[in-house]
């Protein structure tokens, strides 16, 4: 049932990309996304696609997993394409009453869809190769400078990692409660919308109770182990840059340099 839903999930493969410091991957993803928006030439997209293809190859994550992420934005892609196709002004190549397709429209629509595909695949590469814990760790350390302006970076990171940790737990709990109520003859699949919504009450009430119980237990357990916020807290595995991370930054810099050069020169 619910177990089949995938959400920002990690794919263990132990590749070079997996081993990179999460800060490298976070910054890399952000820069990659920016590069998709700043450099608008077709050659740039070609380069960006090649770069991503290389990274995916290195990550050893099956391409089917990447494509699965695309399915979620399929409708968004279609709508974007249609709007750009019909609403971009320019040289008309096809017209039916008030609907017209322009040469520029075709160009923009195609580039937009490519940009969206690269964007989603680029960010799924990060979530597929980084555990949620590493990701929040990386964020905490990478954004540590914000503490100086009194942004509660540690608290935000802690809340994020707890929230991420609770997703699979609560999904499993939902699955269990749904099964338990099915065993009592509950029916979640038939009936109209109102009946279906009503049939969820026997699931939601126990689920909320269990979420509060778990939150309570976790808070107790954290206090019992002396948790008192981020002040003076050390890590078992502090994030440190290794040779591989420096190389990765270098590769990233090269990528950006080439993108800029292509944009300016060609």
């Amino acid at each position: 049932m619910l177990r089949d839903i995938t959400l920002g999930q990690y794919y263990p493969a132990g590749s070079v990309i997996h081993k990179l410091d999460p800060r490298v991957k976070l910054l890399g993803t952000v820069l990659y996304i920016i590069s998709l928006f700043v450099f608008g030439k077709p050659v740039n997209y070609l380069l960006a696609a090649l770069f991503l293809a290389l990274l995916i190859k290195l990550s050893k994550v099956p391409v089917s997993f990447m494509v699965r992420g695309l399915r979620a934005i399929f409708i968004l892609m279609i709508i974007t394409a249609i709007f750009n196709l019909f609403l971009t002004p320019g040289r008309v190549i096809w017209q039916l009453w008030k609907l017209k397709i322009t040469e520029e429209g075709v160009r923009v629509a195609v580039l937009m869809v490519i940009r969206l595909i690269l964007l989603v695949m680029g960010s799924s590469l990060m979530t597929l190769t980084t555990t949620p814990n590493d990701l929040t760790d990386g964020m905490e350390k990478g954004l540590g400078f914000l503490k100086k302006v009194h942004v509660p970076v540690h608290e935000i990171a802690m809340m994020m990692s707890i929230a991420l940790r609770f997703i699979p737990i609560l999904m499993e709990e939902t699955d269990k409660i749904m099964k338990a109520q099915s065993a009592r003859g509950a029916d979640f699949d038939t009936g109209n919308l109102i009946q279906k919504a009503k049939s969820l009450v026997p699931v939601l009430v126990p689920l909320f109770i269990s979420a509060f119980r778990r939150a309570n237990d976790l808070a107790m357990a954290m206090e019992a182990r002396g948790y008192h916020g981020g002040e003076g807290r050390t890590k078992m595995r502090p994030l440190e840059y290794y040779g591989i991370d420096h190389t990765a930054y270098l590769v990233l810099a090269c990528y950006l340099a080439v993108m800029i050069a292509v944009r300016v020169l060609l």
Partner: peptide, 29 residues
């Protein structure tokens, strides 16, 4: 549905599935 009427399954920690406002109504579910 018919099978589930004949084969009753009590899950682990079944009390976690109680949801009604009183015991009798819950058992009526």
């Amino acid at each position: 549905k018919n099978l589930r009427r004949h084969v009753g399954l009590v899950f682990q920690y079944p009390e976690h599935q109680l949801f009604e406002t009183d015991v009798l109504t819950d058992v009526c579910f």
